[in-house]
């Protein structure tokens, strides 16, 4: 019995760790997309931040400096996206794709040239990364069956950025639904003309949204390189930016359902890592790749309207031209 509960707790903990970067990036994308800017550049921003954070942490030996540098790098990429899409009315999908490709090359090229480890940054020591935090009481509760295990494995023992990701969900929901900025953000994504008529700058609102997206993707990228792993590895985001985008769509551009989608995708991944060829009752051995492809298949089904219906912000992808 206790073995089963331990297994469940470990699976849940792995889900939390896997979901954290997805949640952060998807919430970043939520700001951009709710303002009417398509954000397929999540992947590029995560990479920029992962590299910036690991490189800075390796040089300075400080995890906080790394986090700061990662966020700065990601915000910079976000602003380039804004320059192309908001200032120059460029195609948002093309711009995002361009940034993803550029950053994939740039981080590997700079990493290879600066650190001479084949595109990887040096391994970080304990002070240069965010290590696991043991919450008070984990040891005291350890003796209690069930609750103790759950508390020790699931609630306690994660790194700071996992807790930050969890905290961001209500914060983002509050910003989007309960603040003046949030109201303008949603309005600018649905009906920019109305916002413009009210005397509020569409461009400024969208730039602010992109900065928010940059900050959150920055934390997400830093999580990968200086919290979950201890160095930058080339292309280490490995499609997580696109997965976060899928989660955002699956969550219908709303914070809490997006969290649910991230948890679902991360759970599938954790399960897949644990099952690895174990036959299941009724279906036999499920190919690992099928479980890996599941989030993408689900998102396609959702977009097709076979499970629920994804309704995007109305003005998404359309540059706002003031004179008309």
């Amino acid at each position: 019995m206790s073995e089963t509960s331990l297994l469940v707790a470990l699976l849940a903990a792995a889900t939390a760790r896997g979901a954290a970067p997805l949640v952060l990036a998807a919430l970043g994308g939520l700001f951009a997309e709710r303002s009417g800017i398509v954000d397929i550049g999540l992947e590029g921003k995560m990479l920029a931040s992962a590299f910036g954070a690991a490189a800075t942490a390796a040089v300075t030996g400080s995890a906080w400096a790394g986090l700061g540098a990662g966020v700065a790098a990601s915000v910079l990429v976000s602003l380039v996206h804004g320059f192309a899409c908001i200032t120059h009315n460029g195609n948002q999908v093309v711009s995002g794709m361009a940034l993803n490709i550029t950053l994939s090359g740039l981080t590997a090229a700079l990493g290879h040239a600066w650190f001479h480890e084949g595109g990887q940054t040096p391994l970080l020591g304990p002070g240069a990364r965010f290590g696991p935090i043991d919450l008070p009481g984990a040891a005291a509760l350890a003796g209690m069956p069930g609750v103790g295990t759950a508390y020790r494995e699931l609630v306690s023992g994660h790194n700071l950025l996992v807790y930050l990701a969890a905290a961001f969900v209500p914060v983002v929901a509050w910003i989007v639904y309960r603040t003046r900025f949030g109201l303008r953000l949603r309005a600018v994504g649905e009906s920019p003309d109305a916002v413009d008529t009210a005397g509020i700058s569409v461009s400024a609102t969208r730039y602010r949204a992109l900065v928010m997206s940059g900050v959150l993707c920055g934390v997400s990228g830093a999580y990968l390189s200086i919290a979950h792993h201890a160095s930058f590895i080339r292309d280490m985001s490995a499609g997580k930016g696109y997965l976060a985008l899928a989660a955002l769509i699956f969550g219908q551009w709303r914070p809490v359902p997006t969290l649910g989608a991230c948890l679902l995708f991360a759970f599938a991944d954790a399960l897949q890592a644990r099952l690895q060829g174990t036959p299941l009752p009724l279906v036999g051995v499920v190919p690992v790749q099928l479980i890996q492809a599941m989030p993408y298949i689900l998102t396609v089904c959702l977009l097709a309207g076979f499970v629920g219906r994804a309704v995007a912000p109305r003005a998404i992808g359309i540059p706002y031209l003031k004179e008309r």
């Binding site: 192309a84 899409c85 460029g90 948002q92 711009s95 361009a98 490709i101 550029t102 090359g105 090229a109």
Partner: peptide, 20 residues
């Protein structure tokens, strides 16, 4: 990887910044 950088930048200036 430098070629990938050039490729990305070309997409950026030809595609996203074409109006500029």
């Amino acid at each position: 990887d430098m070629v990938v950088v050039i490729q990305g930048l070309i997409i950026l200036v030809c595609g996203a910044l074409e109006h500029a």
